[in-house]
């Protein structure tokens, strides 16, 4: 079985990220699962989750989802936090999302994969929030929470300040 690190290294290249594998050394910022065997996802599942997470939160001038090890974090979250029912539901969610994206999704290049996922996202966030896409919305929520709980997401993206020291109710943008 491939380790999560091996899978991620392949994925970062496959979706167009420059190699920058040194960034992987900083993976563990939020991850219970670092190097070693996956504890929850199958290799196919983490491949899908990683690809989706990097399309939702790509590397820009700040790190992307893989750079902070979002999928590894979710693997650990499901292994450590979730109970049997939640784990079963999450497996089912991943399977459902995979089905909605189609078997070819894993092989699509970055642009085609992005288009495919954007299409799913549009349907999932239609005004009536259809139930059939609740699995995707749930995964997107977890990916986003995990990313913004990371040091990079919290500090670089959200400009989080640990000790504000004062309250200002009015900051003009």
């Amino acid at each position: 079985m491939k380790t999560r690190r091996e899978i991620l290294q392949g994925l970062i290249v496959s979706i167009g990220g420059s190699s920058l594998l040194t960034a992987c050394d900083g993976f563990a910022k939020i991850a219970p699962t670092v190097d070693g065997e996956l504890r929850f996802y199958s290799s196919e599942e983490i491949e899908l989750v990683t690809k989706i997470s990097d399309l939702i939160i790509p590397r820009t001038d700040t790190p992307g989802a893989s750079d902070v090890n979002v999928s590894g974090f979710l693997d650990g979250l499901m292994a450590e936090w979730a109970n049997a029912e939640t784990r079963e539901n999450h497996h089912r969610d991943i399977k459902r999302i995979g089905g909605q994206l189609g078997d070819s999704f894993r092989e699509l290049d970055e642009q085609d994969a992005k288009n495919k996922l954007a299409n799913l996202d549009t349907r999932a966030y239609a005004a009536d929030r259809p139930d059939e896409y609740s699995a995707y919305r749930s995964l997107k929520g977890l990916i986003t929470q995990a990313y913004f709980a990371s040091e990079e997401g919290r500090l670089l993206e959200q400009q989080w300040v640990a000790v504000p020291g004062r309250w200002n109710p009015r900051v003009e943008i």
Binding site: I57, T62, I143
Partner: peptide, 20 residues
């Protein structure tokens, strides 16, 4: 926009989280 429950993916989705 925390929590991820807004439409969109990619750079725009990421940027949206900088907005109050």
């Amino acid at each position: 926009n925390a929590g991820g429950q807004i439409p969109g993916i990619g750079r725009e989705f990421k940027e949206a989280h900088k907005s109050p």
